[in-house]
Design a protein around this nucleic acid. Structure first.
Length: 463
RNA sequence: GGCGACGUGGCCGAGUGGUUAGGCGCGGGUCUGCAAAACCCGUCACACCGGUUCGAUUCCGGUCGUCGCCUCCA
């Protein structure tokens, strides 16, 4: 039985999907205003693992992750860059797609864009107006927070406690400072769509309500996103969707923790961030994916180059084991342990620890001449569910072995000379010319090729 | 001020009412011509103060501290 820590339940609860065997998941995707950073990657990986695990557990998963491609910040960024809103949005959406791919995030089944769902959004807003939960004023449409008696059920913030700190911005026509925008009347030069309330664009919160119910139904199973979205975004989604349909919106709410840098939340607005693309390019996405997996998805994590390097070392250890042995039928006990851990709110840190337990057990077995194929099978299975292999490795830099090869009387400078050099070194070792042997090993190491001598001869790996 | 999360060894980071998490680093050992890899041993942790208990790092209360949200944010 899968159990999950649902924000709205404020507890770890058994997962009981609305339709047995099926799971609908909606995750808030990015606002494509600028380059993705590590924090965006973490959220994507967190829910990617949840999705993969539920599928592995036999659920038929429908996974929806939206793209917010119209929003104030995008309009501002486009104006600054001197390009149109849609060109910037498409360009940035592609950057996000590349980042997700490097991290091994499986593409959503459906990836709806706000700008392609304007009719659905308008219809939803109209329903809210008809039901007395929203009103048009001054070209805008607002949601009446006071009209929703249960407002605050997710975040625990009650309207009376929220009052202080809210203001009505100049130019807004809200009846109450708590009300939030459903439809924003267009200002000159801004993108707009026709609506019953005049030209304008959707507010941020309404698009998720409209798209989630379109693809998953008025009620579905799991809604995900970062903890920073709990209030007001997710609170407002609930108010809108449940206000319009009268049904429970998402049954479970899952929230991933933030990525901190130097103890402070990584965010575009503060400029405290590490660009996802630069890491993927330099290190590949795999170490970062493991770094995420080593912490529970709800916990805040710290990012640093040192931590990334540690993850790289751990991956090397894992890979060496995988190279040592051919995987067979997975060890059932290991998979049972994995399932127990992951059933408990997707405890990936424990799963990672199990993975390295298995590596040690397997290595020990191999050292003693035993058969580790079942352990290796379990390792492969777990690696697969965690999606590590789908994340990218760093691009290999070109080998430059020309000088070294020439020094040893060989032609060429590519990977093919490595085997020849290893043979030369073996000969030198046989003849106990260890200085010559070591010179070859050191030469290769300088070029980024590591040699390891084992009982079955010498093997090499890139580093 | 309000709401929420959290404080674990040199570092990262799980977990538990009484018995080894795991990774990285460091020290020692096995193997090896040497190294690397692998394995073994060690590095004897749970913010502070009370309480419950035969026994608490684990439960309860308080103190201090950190982080997030309360405006856009994964």
């Amino acid at each position: 039985m899968v159990r999950l820590n649902s924000t709205i339940h404020r507890a770890v609860v058994p997962f009981e999907p609305r339709d047995e065997g099926k799971v609908g998941i909606y995750v808030c995707g990015p606002t494509v205003q600028s380059e993705p950073h590590v924090g965006h990657g973490r959220s994507a990986v967190a829910f990617d693992v949840i999705r993969r695990y539920l599928a592995w557990r036999g659920f038929d998963v429908t996974y929806v992750r939206n793209v917010t491609d119209i929003e104030d910040k995008i309009i501002a960024a486009a104006a600054e860059a001197g390009e149109s809103v849609d060109v910037l949005a498409v360009r940035m959406a592609e950057r996000f797609a590349n980042g997700y791919k490097a991290l091994g995030v499986v593409e959503p089944d459906i990836e709806p864009k706000a700008t392609e769902h304007i009719p659905e959004i308008i219809e939803l807003i109209q329903t809210l107006i008809d039901r007395g939960l929203a009103y048009a004023a001054g070209g805008d449409v607002y949601f009446s927070v006071r009209a929703d008696e249960r407002y605050g059920r997710l975040s625990g913030r009650k309207p009376d406690e929220l009052r202080a700190g809210y203001r009505i911005e100049v130019g807004e026509s809200k009846h109450d400072p708590l009300d939030f925008t459903l439809w924003k009347g267009a200002k000159p030069g801004e993108p707009w769509w026709d609506s019953p309330w005049g030209p304008g664009r959707p507010g941020w919160h309404i698009e998720c309500s409209a798209m989630a119910s379109k693809y998953l139904g008025d009620g579905f199973d799991i809604h995900g996103g970062g903890t920073d979205l709990i209030f007001p975004h997710h609170e407002n989604e609930i108010a809108q969707s449940e206000g319009a349909s009268g049904e429970t919106f998402a049954k479970y709410w899952l929230h991933n923790g933030m990525v901190n840098l130097g103890g402070e939340k990584m965010a575009k607005s503060t400029g405290v961030l590490v660009d996802l693309a630069s890491i993927a390019e330099k290190h590949g996405g795999r170490p970062l994916r493991l770094l995420f997996l080593r912490a529970h998805y709800r916990s805040p994590i710290e990012y640093s180059d040192e931590l990334l390097a540690e993850a790289e070392d751990a991956l090397d250890r894992l890979q060496r084991f995988r190279d040592r042995v051919t995987a067979g039928e997975p060890d059932a006990g290991a998979l049972n342990r994995f399932r127990e851990m992951m059933d408990d709110d997707f405890a990936t840190p424990e799963a990672v620890s199990l993975l390295f337990d298995l590596v040690r057990d397997g290595n020990r077995l191999l050292d003693d001449g035993g058969d580790a194929s079942a352990i290796a099978g379990a390792v492969e299975e777990i690696v697969g569910v965690l999606g590590l292999d789908d994340a990218s490795l760093p691009a290999e830099t070109a080998l430059d072995l020309g000088d070294l090869a020439a020094r040893h009387g060989l032609a060429g400078g590519g990977p093919e000379v490595i085997d020849q050099l290893i043979r030369l070194r073996a000969k030198a070792r046989e003849e106990r010319r260890f200085d010559d042997a070591d010179a070859i090993r050191e030469g290769l190491e300088e070029a980024g090729v590591i040699l390891e001598d084992g009982p079955d001869g010498t093997r090499w790996l890139r580093r």
